[in-house]
Nucleic acid binder design. Sequence first.
DNA 1: CTGAAAGCGCTTACAG
DNA 2: CTGAAAGCGCTTACAG
Lengths: 337, 337
Amino acid sequence: MKKGVTIKDIALKLNMSVSTVSKALNNDLSISIPTKDRVKQLANDWNYVPNEAARHFKLCKTFTLGLIIPNMLDQFFVLAINGAEKIAAMEKYNVIISQSHEDPLNEERIVDLMKRNRVDGLIVVITKKTEDMSPFLNLKNIGIPVVFFARPPKDDSFDYVTADNEGGAFKATEYLIKRGHKRIGHLMGPESMAISQKRLQGYKTALQKNKIGFDPHLVKVVDLTEESTFFAMSQFMKMKSPPTGIFAFKNYISLDAIEFLKKKFPEMIDKVDFSGFGNLPLFRHLDHKPVASIEESSYEMGEEAARLLFRFIREEDSMNTRAVQHIQIHCKLVVHK
Amino acid sequence: MKKGVTIKDIALKLNMSVSTVSKALNNDLSISIPTKDRVKQLANDWNYVPNEAARHFKLCKTFTLGLIIPNMLDQFFVLAINGAEKIAAMEKYNVIISQSHEDPLNEERIVDLMKRNRVDGLIVVITKKTEDMSPFLNLKNIGIPVVFFARPPKDDSFDYVTADNEGGAFKATEYLIKRGHKRIGHLMGPESMAISQKRLQGYKTALQKNKIGFDPHLVKVVDLTEESTFFAMSQFMKMKSPPTGIFAFKNYISLDAIEFLKKKFPEMIDKVDFSGFGNLPLFRHLDHKPVASIEESSYEMGEEAARLLFRFIREEDSMNTRAVQHIQIHCKLVVHK
DNA sequence: CTGAAAGCGCTTACAG
DNA sequence: CTGAAAGCGCTTACAG
């Protein structure tokens, strides 16, 4: 980084103090219009670029939000980022995005980095394997507020924004029932994720309400990799009477499951209906896709998380006294085709 | 941001000078092992978190790379980001990503922001409409190196990494010819983009080499929106003898074009073959997709761009004397199904 | 091996 | 309305 023009240079040239120049550039009310004009004119002529690193340092504030997400190839997260960025932009805040790639070790490294860089707040989607929350506890101690997003930690003492997981699962399952399915499987999310249980619960409730017995063999846990979905599907297909409707924890899983059928049981591809969480932009291009999606409104969820975070940033002092916030976003069922 | 523990606090407690503490934490050779141990022990006990804002300020270096891309919903860019991030991580650099959403005004705002935040270097995919390069010239002046990526500016005085656009277009077009097509259309990229011409040229060369006359009616310019692709396709389909093979500037355009056929000319969907730039992860899930893609190796391109940028960051002094770098990445043809 | 001192560029409470 | 001065947390050239 070259040295560049500083307010000192400007002050020297105009025979003013640096205080005056600083105030003029910041539109301080105490400075006269002519002075402001002269300062701004020269700043412009000289291509003055304020050194934010110096401001951040001086003000103990970086005007930066950290975002930690598992993976940017997942459109759900990208939409959420866009929502958060919108709110951040309104507050003239920057956003730093970093990917954990679903690895808790990476996650810890990134949290540390964000801490060192003194972001003013953090929005985090924890990895599918994160169980140890100590890196985040530590964050609280040094006064950096965190809002968890989409995947709430099991420990309810943290603030989060998430979908109505149980309600959404209920709707997705019931839609399959309404389409006439009696044997309904569930591709369940990892045990390590709190929402896996919620979505399972919604599935169970839908069965119950519609007088369909719960069969534990119809629930297979997957870990969000293609292999595990393929394995679960092959288990399903081996059954005497395989499910004809499958509610997936997440629609990226449905896509893998559909992929599996195409490859191994092409005759079944039109006989099994899928529903699941996530109404993704890429569905537009698909011929074989879930019959219904739970719209998680990820853009709005991102906005909501950012709004909550800004509230915390503003109320920083009351950090230790304020009530924990758990925000739940309503989920809509979207039928495809 | 709370005040937190500083090296001064540690120095006070241990009856040392701040210089010693600073050096101990930075593993300076001049400090004795026992001293280092005592310092590190206390730093650890007290949860000391170095204030990077202060370091950046002091060192006139932020260890941060800026990335400006049009849109994170485009997987091509996400892969490139991942490549650049990998290289940055190896150099212990952070990456700030910002989206221009294809709007030059946004782009200018972001460049300004990156300037103020004194990123050490910038990797930029300009918007499809960017013609005025002055925001970037300005960057050079204050000593922030920039590497353009994927979409080289028309002005060749900038450094960039791009695909072998002409060669790739040649291969994609020739593949359609090899499949027996005689009437081959081209969905050309925006005139404002330099690579649109290159890809058109590759298309023309492939026709020529294979003794197929060039028909200007078979070239339609699109602007990367669905509407413009739909319009171009409807023009094609109105022709007496519409093209049976179409080489698209970019495969997201192919997807829109396929969408158009599905909707308006379902009987044609299996009669028109597409090829184009971009071998995207999402193709995995598609039944109707281009018959071939030009693999742009975006991950590797991202790495390459970051490597080049680091070279510039290191050689900062010779900024004005060094030769302009134009790196071209070889493109492979990937046949689908 | 350790420390005193200067300084990075900016903001702000205070004095005039 | 303007300015002098302190200080944010750190690094480093220099002295000892």
